[in-house]
C-alpha cells in the first residue's frame, strides 16, 4: 500500500479510531478511580474478564437459537454480552475495592493479584466450557459496524469518509463518554465530591462526605468502563475471547491517564496518540521495513518515553494510593 495515498490514510484513521476505543474506555474508567484516590492497576485484568464474560455469554445464549435455526440473528444477544461484561467488570472491580478500601491493602499488590487471576482463571473456565485453555468458540452475534444498523446510508459508508465513520456503536459510545465524563466530573456535585476524596479525604470527611463510599463508586465505575473495553475487544473487534486478550492495554491506558493529566480531554488526546501509533504499527508491520518484533515493541517504548517526558509536569490527585483511615 502506497503511504499517503487516500486508501492508506483512510485505513490509518479508521484503524486509529478502533485502537483508541478500548484505551479510551479504560483510561476514562481509570480516571474515576484515580480521581477518587485509588490506584487501579487491575484494569488490565478487568478488560480480560469483561472480554471473557461477553464472549461466553453471547456464545451460550445464542447456541440454542442457532441450533434451532442456523441463520437466526437476534438483535439483543450482543447487547446482553455487553451487559455481562459490565456486570463482571463491576464484580472484579469490587474485589479490588473491598481489598484496597475496606482492608486497606497495598493497592498495587491487590491490583496485581486481580491481574494474575485474569491470566489463570479464564483458562480453567475455557477448559471446562470449550475443551481448550486459550480460546472461546467463535460467536455469530457480534456488535457490527454502523452500516449494519443504518442500511439506508450504505452509499455514504462506501465513500472514504464513510469508511472512517463506519465503526461499531461502541466506538461512538467511547467518544461520547468524553464530554459526558467531563460533565459528571466537573459540573456536578457528585464529581466535586469524588475529586475531593482523592485530593483531601480528611477535609471531605469533615464535610460529611462518605469517603469510603465515594471511593467504592470510583472503582466500580472503572469496572463498568474497563468491562466495556473488554466487550469491545471480544465481541466487536473480534468474535471470540483469547487468553491475555487485553495485551497490555490496561497498562497503556494508565499511562495515557497520566499523560492526559487525569482530565477527559487530555485523556482523549493521549489515547488518540496511542491509537494512531498502534494503527500505524499494524499498517507497516506487513511491509517488511523493520522486523515485526521491533515494531511490536513500539507502543511500549512510546509509553515509557511519554511517561518519562511528562511525569514531572503532571500533578496526580494528592491522596492517590493512600488507604483512608477514619
Amino acid at each position: 500500500m502506497e503511504i499517503f495515498s487516500t486508501a492508506f490514510l483512510v485505513a490509518l484513521v479508521a484503524g486509529a479510531l478502533r485502537q483508541t476505543t478500548p484505551l479510551l474506555f479504560t483510561a476514562l474508567g481509570g480516571m474515576f478511580n484515580e480521581r477518587s484516590g485509588v490506584v487501579n492497576i487491575a484494569l488490565e485484568g478487568i478488560i480480560n474478564f469483561g472480554a471473557l464474560a461477553a464472549a461466553v455469554t453471547v456464545q451460550l445464549v445464542e447456541a440454542p437459537y442457532l441450533a434451532h435455526d442456523p441463520n437466526a440473528r437476534i438483535w439483543w444477544i450482543p447487547w446482553l454480552g455487553v451487559l455481562a461484561a459490565i456486570v463482571v467488570g463491576v464484580l472484579v472491580a469490587w474485589i479490588h475495592a473491598v481489598v484496597s478500601i475496606r482492608y486497606r491493602a497495598d493497592q498495587i499488590v491487590s491490583g496485581t493479584a486481580v491481574n494474575m487471576l485474569s491470566f489463570g482463571l479464564p483458562s480453567i473456565l475455557l477448559l471446562f466450557l470449550y475443551g481448550n485453555t486459550s480460546d472461546s468458540k467463535d460467536v455469530v452475534h457480534r456488535i457490527l459496524p454502523m452500516d449494519a444498523y443504518l442500511p439506508f446510508l450504505r452509499d455514504f459508508f462506501s465513500t472514504p469518509l464513510g469508511r472512517i465513520l463506519d465503526q461499531s456503536p461502541l466506538v461512538y459510545l467511547a467518544f461520547l463518554l468524553v464530554p459526558l465524563t467531563y460533565y459528571l466530573l466537573f459540573k456536578t456535585p457528585w464529581g466535586l465530591r469524588l475529586r475531593s476524596v482523592g485530593e483531601n479525604p480528611e477535609a471531605a470527611d469533615s464535610l460529611g462526605i462518605n469517603v469510603f463510599w465515594m471511593r467504592y463508586q470510583g472503582v466500580l465505575l472503572s469496572g463498568v468502563l474497563a468491562g466495556l473495553a473488554g466487550a469491545y475487544l471480544s465481541i466487536s473487534e473480534l468474535n471470540h475471547f483469547t487468553r491475555l486478550m487485553a495485551a497490555g492495554r490496561g497498562f497503556i491506558a494508565l499511562a495515557a491517564l497520566i499523560f492526559g493529566q487525569w482530565h477527559p480531554l487530555g485523556i482523549l488526546g493521549a489515547t488518540l496518540l496511542f491509537g494512531f501509533a498502534e494503527a500505524f504499527r499494524i499498517l507497516i508491520e506487513g511491509t517488511g521495513i523493520l522486523p515485526s518484533p521491533l515494531i511490536q515493541a513500539f507502543p511500549f517504548v512510546l509509553t515509557m518515553l511519554v511517561l518519562a517526558g511528562f511525569i514531572g509536569r503532571a500533578r496526580p490527585p494528592a491522596a492517590i494510593g493512600k488507604p483512608y483511615e477514619k
Binding site: I95, V109, F119, L127
Partner: peptide
C-alpha cells in the same frame, strides 16, 4: 482430573490477594 494446571496460578493470585488484605485478620 482434566483440571487445567492454571488452578495453581489461580491459587497463587488468591494468596497474593488475601495476603494483601492481611488474611482478613484483625489489623
Amino acid at each position: 482430573l482434566g483440571i487445567s494446571r492454571e488452578l495453581v496460578t489461580v491459587l497463587e493470585s488468591l494468596i497474593v490477594l488475601f495476603i494483601a488484605a492481611g488474611g482478613f485478620l484483625p489489623r
